[in-house]
């Protein structure tokens, strides 16, 4: 109870501080400073492990499972999808930059011409449509999920490198930031309530993960081989606070992913990973 109250005070302070029009980079630095001040013993590089960074017992289980992850056959399916030519005869590697390797950390980016945020899934869908195929539905495990789970392994270790350049890009970033800090739902929680003010704290039996480091490791395989995409997780999070979420692939969640991803700039991609 005491912790919860402290958390609420924290929210007010931090919310106030970040609401001042600041640059994305100062937002990121401020967020990291907040975590490292609270948890001086945890290196920011370990935030890519999420809540596992705060609990050695959980991290040991993660390591044991990652030795030979149960979802390997899903990645193989994704590899086949990746290598199968599209209707035009071209492959994904032909239409994505750098043959699709070491690029996942550049997404989402802001497309000036289109005037909107483009996620990796949007880029894959653009590639599909340009080559005579239908777009996949964002959040669909069997298609976008399986394909990106493999595709992101080609960027394993790449440092997250999100750019916010120009006023329109900044608007999209600020919109995502607003979603992140806005309280919503019956429980009146924001993303930040849990993943900033209460990161590293237990919510009942659950350790809460920090927002920095979140976006480097999606999709995750929960409980072994149940694939969950980042925006599907957003929808799940909103549902948990009894809020009706915008759907996966919507502008609102794309902007949220843009802001959220910026927070992990400089951290290495971890693809793909087990989570409980």
């Amino acid at each position: 109870m005491k912790k919860a109250i402290l958390g609420l005070i924290g929210l007010g302070l931090l919310g106030g501080a970040v609401n001042v029009m600041a640059s994305p980079e100062s937002d990121r630095q401020e967020m990291i400073k907040y975590y490292t001040t609270k948890y001086p013993n945890i290196k920011i590089d370990d935030y890519v492990y999420g809540a596992l960074a705060f609990d050695a017992d959980s991290k040991a289980q993660y390591d044991a499972i990652m030795e030979f992850p149960p979802y390997e056959s899903v990645l193989e399916k994704g590899k086949k999808m990746w290598e199968t030519p599209l209707k035009s005869g071209k492959t994904y590697a032909d239409c994505l930059p750098n043959g699709g390797k070491n690029i996942a950390g550049n997404y989402p980016y802001f497309d000036e011409k289109a005037g909107k945020v483009v996620t990796l899934i949007d880029a894959i869908n653009a590639c599909r449509v340009a080559n005579g195929e239908q777009a996949y539905k964002p959040g669909d495990k069997a298609t976008t999920g399986t394909l990106t789970a493999y595709m992101r392994t080609l960027s394993d270790g790449m440092l997250m490198n999100i750019k916010v350049e120009g006023p329109k890009a900044l608007d999209a970033y600020e919109d995502g930031k607003k979603t992140f800090f806005s309280r919503a739902g019956q429980l009146n929680f924001s993303c930040a309530t849990c993943h900033v003010q209460n990161a590293g704290v237990r919510l009942r039996s659950e350790l809460i993960s920090p927002a920095v480091g979140h976006t480097v490791h999606w999709p995750v395989f929960r409980g072994g081989d149940n694939l969950v995409e980042l925006q599907t997780r957003y929808v799940g999070c909103f549902k948990s606070v009894r809020h009706i979420s915008a759907p996966a692939g919507s502008e609102k969640l794309n902007n949220l992913e843009y802001f959220h991803s910026y927070l992990s700039n400089g951290l290495p991609m971890k693809a793909s990973v087990f989570r409980k």
Binding site: F68, P70, S73, G224
Partner: peptide, 8 residues
């Protein structure tokens, strides 16, 4: 034993 059994 868990789905997709692992043995070491």
């Amino acid at each position: 034993v868990s789905k997709n059994p692992y043995l070491g």
